[in-house]
Design a binder for these strands. Structure first.
Length: 833
RNA sequence: GCGAAAGUGGCGGAAUUGGCAGACGCGCUGGACUUAGGAUCCAGUCCGCAUAAAGCGGUUGGGGGUUCGACUCCCCCCUUUCGCACCA
């Protein structure tokens, strides 16, 4: 009988679907295991990256299930987003239709892969019953002061008339029309993620199951730094400028001040003076520059004098104030004290303009001299020219100065974060409407909870990209104020789709709940996700937002903990011909074609075998062929034997040697090999997710089975029995990787029930021990020979056998043994002279 | 520039705690079966020397070190990938 993957895969997928084999129910008596792969955007078709991601998750899910865990393994669709809107414009098809059609197609593709999802929990972020709760969360955020509105600078494409996400800006240009992106000030809604900045940072330490890489990226992103805010009074004005610095120890060397061009203080400083025109011109020019160019470290330092001075509170000097292109408005206070001797940027700028440089930190053993300085000295040292602080180590001066500032009202100690609040407004149609109403009398009014959802209107025309398409939909925009019942207008922006994906994993715990976004009891049973799997590209964005949301969900009283993902696996990319698979490279491999040709078991097996999950996977058509060949080999293990099996016999469970005195040596060797393979495969899955080596060891077992001469069965019944036990073992071990073929062969082997219902095979420690072991003989660290000794042989005996070995004797002629090292069960090393 | 990860046969990769480098697969070579083989089975396959066989030497990006022993630990350097990058 030929191995025909298509037939058997259809058969088993149908059985799984009808029986709801993978449905999860909370069960207090069983330990839960929540495994999750990042849900996909329904772009049209599944690609190889998805296949790999889901194959990895499926192995873990099936393994844990068989280990007796109550497994939750859900799937859904991150189905709001710009591509649907673009497709609508291009093909005159409604985003809903486009999205739902893609979902149907991709769901069928996932099902054809035989993945163990609980499809009853499927989530669609673009459907009312989900996005209603996004709006509900928005209202809760608003109530708690975690959602607010402010003017902000955003990436703006003048040609497309829309805000662009950072990912959609390539080299400072719009990805679609290549227009240069500018910074535009717009009123935007923000989520106050900075409220949790400290916790988001400190909790990283407890995420032991996360890759260090991701933790580092999040730490960098949050960017905590310790320093001081210092107040500099402005000459001839009744206000002052506050700067943030981490180097308050250098304040005696501050000779001028630089402020961000965008800083509103600039306007105040120049108002009505001769500097107004040139400075405004400079500011406008800098603002027109795109952000990428602006924040390039190698960019020429430019600045313009504002005509004003401020007073250094420690030295009393008049410091000229400059507007400078290298000062960022959105970090610190948007103003910095410039210390040219000890900051490279200030140094470059001072040299260019000809501003004074003053050394206030001296490194040990060297005398720095302001005139001969070629670059800023930014390392540690001792304070000089710093009044009573002179002579202090700069690290000590940090603290001393902060106390001095605080005592004298000059400044204070502060902690600054690089993390900014999350701007969630998008001038798009295909997203969650922000549930806010603007009333001329009442101002900003949140939509009452009872009125949710604010529905996305379905009757829009998609013939042109405009900013906030909802603006043009009168029946959406025009409404009545919930407070005063007068005419009012709705917010026309929608939410960033990252909002939708920030809590979907929680919703999976009670996906059908109509009364609440989350059911407390179910949530606390399933959460946190025990194993989350996805690409590294979400290291900061999604994974940070999800952590933030989970903390809010905790503080809203739904959940008793604030971290969503205990373990995180970031799988590598799928590479072909040295590049990531992409349309533009033309190196795409379509999963559908492969499944049609080889079956999904083969495709999954190859993805898992070709490299460990966290590394990039090099695609190889020959490798796929090899995976298929291996499954054919497994198939043929029992090809001619089928008629000999008794039907409905139970699976064997652990098979050891108890009561088997009649077992032959060959059978014993094979049986031991089975137990070793069980251990190896279990450990590789459980401890390291190294599926490639797990599969390799199953291949070894299969190779060993092929070397057994079935003619021997006639005279050796124990060998026959162990052989079929081994086949059974192969199926039990291989089934998380290639489930369909294993189920089919299990049935053909005459077994009652399915493999999925069988517990994961155990092994007998006794069966792992060899009676005879091979000891390697090294002489001066070089491998010279091997000997076979009883496993229990004492050290002295092994040594005797070694020196009596013919070859060793030969090599030891005229030499003296100085030392011998015995590594138990492995080797003996003779050090000779 | 800063930080992280990686570098092993012709290729993908293995070696889990410092103990036989190259498991397993691909590719290649030979043999068996065969009308045929691009199916299947068996065997060989790191490199060099030697070769009837046994053997000898070398080898984990390069150089140094620690150790009886290093792919593994330490120092220096090279290359690649990724992340951050005027953050005061």
């Amino acid at each position: 009988m030929k191995y025909e993957p298509k037939i058997i895969e259809d058969k088993w997928q149908k059985i799984w679907e009808e029986k709801k084999t993978f449905a999860a129910r909370p069960d207090k008596n069983r330990q839960k295991y929540y495994i999750l792969e990042m849900f996909p955007y329904p772009s049209g078709r599944i690609h190889m990256g998805h296949v790999r991601n889901y194959a990895i998750g499926d192995v873990i899910a099936r393994y844990k299930w068989r280990k007796g865990f109550n497994v939750l393994h859900p799937m859904g669709w991150d189905s709001f987003g710009l591509p649907a809107e673009n497709a609508a414009i291009k093909h005159k098809i409604h985003p809903t239709k486009w999205t739902e059609e893609n979902i149907s197609y991709m769901r069928a593709q996932l099902k054809s892969l035989g993945l163990s999802y609980d499809w009853d929990r499927e989530i669609f972020t673009c459907r009312e019953d989900y996005y209603k709760w996004c709006q509900w969360f928005f209202l809760k955020f608003y109530e708690k002061g975690l959602a607010y509105q402010k003017e902000a600078l955003v990436n703006w494409c003048e040609s497309c008339k829309t805000v662009l996400a950072n990912e959609q800006v390539e080299d400072g240009r719009c990805w679609r029309c290549e227009t240069e992106v500018i910074q535009k000030e717009m009123k935007q809604w923000f989520f106050k993620i900075t409220h949790y900045a400290e916790e988001l940072l400190s909790e990283l330490e407890n995420l032991k199951g996360w890759p260090e890489r991701v933790l580092t990226m999040q730490r960098n992103w949050i960017g905590k730094s310790y320093g001081a805010e210092i107040i500099f009074p402005v000459s001839d004005k009744n206000f002052s400028i506050t700067v943030f610095t981490t180097r308050q120890d250098t304040i005696f060397g501050a000779t001028f001040m630089s402020i961000a061009p965008e800083n509103p203080i600039v306007r105040e400083l120049i108002k009505g003076t001769e500097y107004e025109k040139p400075v405004t011109e400079f500011v406008e020019n800098v603002r027109k520059e795109n952000k990428i160019l602006r924040t390039d470290a190698t960019r020429e330092k430019e600045g313009i004098f504002t005509g004003r001075y401020c007073i250094n509170p420690m030295t009393g000097w008049k410091m000229p104030i400059f507007a400078a292109n290298f000062v960022l408005m959105d970090y610190g206070t948007g103003a910095v004290m410039a210390v040219p001797a000890h900051d490279q940027r200030d140094f470059e700028f001072a040299k260019k303009i000809g501003l004074p440089v003053k050394v206030v930190i001296q490194p040990p053993g060297v005398e720095l001299n302001a005139e001969s300085l070629e670059s800023a000295y930014t390392e540690e040292g001792v304070l000089v020219n710093s009044k009573e602080f002179s002579g202090m180590k700069n690290t000590e001066a940090m603290e001393a100065l902060v106390s001095y500032f605080q005592k004298n009202g000059i400044g204070r100690k502060v902690v600054n974060y690089r993390l900014k609040d999350w701007g969630i407004s998008r001038q798009r149609y295909w997203g969650v409407p922000i549930p806010i109403i603007y009333c001329d009398s009442c101002g900003v009014v949140p939509v009452p909870e009872a009125d949710l959802p604010v529905r996305l209107p379905m009757n829009l025309q998609f013939d042109n990209i405009g900013d906030s398409p909802l603006k043009g939909c009168d029946e959406f925009v025009n409404t009545t104020c919930p407070k005063c019942r007068k005419k009012a207008k709705r917010e026309v922006d929608t939410m960033d789709t990252f909002v939708d994906s920030s809590w979907y994993f929680s919703r999976y715990c009670s996906p059908q709940s109509k009364t609440s976004p989350l059911e407390k009891e179910e949530l606390n049973y399933w959460m946190p996700v025990d194993q989350y799997i996805g690409g590294i590209e979400h290291a900061v964005l999604h994974l940070l937002y999800a952590r933030f949301f989970t903390k809010v969900i905790r503080d809203l009283g739904f959940l008793n903990r604030g971290e969503p993902f205990t373990n995180l696996l970031t799988q590598g990319m799928v590479i072909k011909d040295g590049a990531k698979m992409s349309k533009s490279k033309g190196n795409i491999v379509d999963p559908d074609d492969l499944i049609k040709k080889y079956g999904s078991d083969t495709v999954r097996l190859f993805c898992l075998f070709a490299s460990p999950p966290e590394r990039d996977l090099d695609w190889s058509d020959e490798g796929v062929e090899g995976a298929f060949r291996f499954l054919c080999r497994v198939w043929r293990l029992l090809d001619e034997e089928e008629k000999n099996f008794s039907h409905n016999s139970p699976f064997s469970g652990i098979k050891d040697l108890t009561g088997q005195e009649t077992i032959s040596e060959d059978a014993k060797t094979l049986l031991k090999r089975c137990h070793k393979t069980i251990k190896k495969v279990s450990d590789d899955i459980e401890q390291r997710f190294h599926f490639n080596t797990a599969i390799a060891s199953i291949m070894e077992l299969v190779n060993a089975l092929y070397l057994i001469d079935k003619n021997d069965f006639k005279k050796d019944d124990s060998l026959r029995s162990v052989y079929f036990f081994s086949v059974e073992t192969v199926l039990l071990l291989l089934s998380p990787f290639a489930p369909h073929i294993c189920e089919e062969l299990g049935q053909r082997l005459g077994k009652a029930g399915t493999i999925f219902e069988q517990p994961w095979p155990g092994y007998d420690e006794k069966m792992l021990i060899d009676e005879e072991i091979t000891i390697v003989i090294q002489i001066n660290g070089k491998m010279r020979s091997k000997i076979s000794v009883p496993a229990q042989a004492p050290e002295e005996e092994i040594k005797q056998i070694t020196i009596n070995n013919e070859k060793v004797k030969d090599l030891l002629k005229n030499k003296k043994i100085i030392k011998s090292i015995l590594v138990p069960k492995r080797l003996i090393n003779l050090v000779v002279k």
